[in-house]
Structures are given as structure tokens and as C-alpha cells.
Design a protein around this nucleic acid. Sequence first.
DNA 1: TCACAAAAGTAGATCTAGTCTAAAGTTGGA
DNA 2: TCCAACTTTAGACTAGATCTACTTTTGTGA
Lengths: 142, 142
Amino acid sequence: MRPDEAARLEEHGIKASAHRVAIASYVLHTDEHPSADDVWARVKQAFPMVSRATIYNTLNLFVEKGLLRHLVLTEGRLVFDSNVEKHHHFIDEGTGQIYDLPWDTLKVSRVKQIKGFDVRDYQVLLRGRKRGRKREKKSDSR
Amino acid sequence: MRPDEAARLEEHGIKASAHRVAIASYVLHTDEHPSADDVWARVKQAFPMVSRATIYNTLNLFVEKGLLRHLVLTEGRLVFDSNVEKHHHFIDEGTGQIYDLPWDTLKVSRVKQIKGFDVRDYQVLLRGRKRGRKREKKSDSR
DNA sequence: TCACAAAAGTAGATCTAGTCTAAAGTTGGA
DNA sequence: TCCAACTTTAGACTAGATCTACTTTTGTGA
């Protein structure tokens, strides 16, 4: 658990309780795109008494305060992304894994010229398969 | 109801029952991106006895046979798209409406060069607001 | 230090989209 | 006509997410 976690929450106008810090220290430092229940499972390892409602409350609070984004990319689950910068997403159709692609990996032209729509935000959504070995990533560090 | 509807189903290896034709004649000719329950509501106007399971069965069958695509773009609902060609999507953040953008409206470069991923398919997903008058579209014709 | 209001957390009920099941109805070819 | 395969049905079930009403914790100020 990072020492600066509480400070980070306060910076965003969130009172730092023990549960919130516990949730933050996982969800803000993973690139696994966990669902709410994934987060619950993880946080329960350390705090078995934490309720599902708290997980949902806290994640929604984080989204509202701009610490997280939530993504609707795959069926039946809302997933959280600690990367709040602009970026694209690749979905592995075999495993369901979601990967972030840095913004400048791709270039989208003519967005400005679309007629009749005010575009506030966009991203490219790619589907296919990740090549080579299954992802070896392990730790939460970023 | 189009006379050619049944033929279109058969072409795709789907036996044409009355319900299937009824569902097809709405869902294959709309650009409203309806959810399964939207389809149910609509089809019930003509066939009040149709069950929810049939709607789901039929829509899933259409997807499987390539007559429809299903999209997961907005929270909590799977939506169907009769446009099976490559295209992009714009979501109006005010109304939740989904609009199709023709493939060549935008140009995405460097997709081929992405390392470590086999891209099978991609699209640009834009969010913002549609400008001007609320959509005036009415009929199902295409 | 204590009192107490506001904030945070809780269990479990509820909601909703979607799937499953088992039975009934329909169809079409031998 | 018979029968097997297919289609449709009502309603049970599931899972993700939210809501509700209650309890616990926290922190401020007398």
C-alpha cells in the first residue's frame, strides 16, 4: 500500500477512509481493467468484511471525481480503467482481456470535419488476438 | 412487411417462420439500434403473443447468421445494428442515441503497424452531441 | 472529554437484462 | 397420416448493479 494514496484521494476531494485507501491502492495502480466484482474479490483478501455496496459506492465515487474511467466494452460487465488519459483499447477476443494502446499508436484523421456532430471525445476500439505468449504481467506497479 | 423478407432469411440459412419474419421486418430495416426489449415492444404491437425468449432467440440467431451485429456501447444494454458493413459509431451523450458514421468519414492510420496484436476488426467510437434539431427520422425504409 | 451531526459502511432486498428449461405447438417429408 | 426436428412458450433462474434503511465511524466544537 502506497503511503501517498490517502493524499491522492484528498487531492480529488475524497475523504480517505481505510476502505477507500484499500480500494484505491489496487484499482488505481492496475492495468487489468477490473470489474467491480474483481475489485471486491481483491480487496476482500485484505479486508474480508468489506461489503459489495461499498465497493460499488467507492468505484462510482472515484469515477465521479475523475480518478477512474469506466468502460462498457464487453458484454455484461462494466469495467474500470485507471488510465484516465486519452488512449485506445484493444480487446482480445479469445481471453476477453482489454489492453490499453497509447494515444499516438494510431492516428485518426478528419474527426474535426464530421458534420452535424460535436465530438467531445473519441477512441479507436480494436478487436483481435494478442500475439505470442499470454501476458506475463504480474505486479500492480506502474 | 416486405415480400422479400422470408427469402432473405432463407438465403442465410434461417427457416422463415411468421415470428422471425415479423422480427426481421423491423430489426433489419431500422437504424435505431434497438435493444432486445425495444424489439419486443415493437413486435408485440403486431403479434401480442410473442414471447421474450423468442425475441432473444431470434436476435441471437440473426447475429450468428450474419444478418445483424450486436454492439456493447452503452451501459446495461446490448444493442443490435442492422448495418453489418464496417462503420463507426457516434453516441449522443444527451440522448443516448447511437448514430452510424460511414466507414470513409474517418481515416485511421497505422493500424497495420501495431506490434504484438492481430487486429481482426476496428472502429472509431465517438461521443458528444448531435448538433441542431433532434433527429427527424421516421420510417424504417433504408 | 463528550455529544452529536455528517459521512461512511453494512446486509440484504430489489431491479433489470439476459439465459435456461421443460413442455407444447408447428412443420414438412416419408 | 405419422413422426422427428424445429420453433415457440411461460416462467424460473442468474448475474451485475443499485437501492434502502439501518449501524458505525469520524471529527468538530463546547
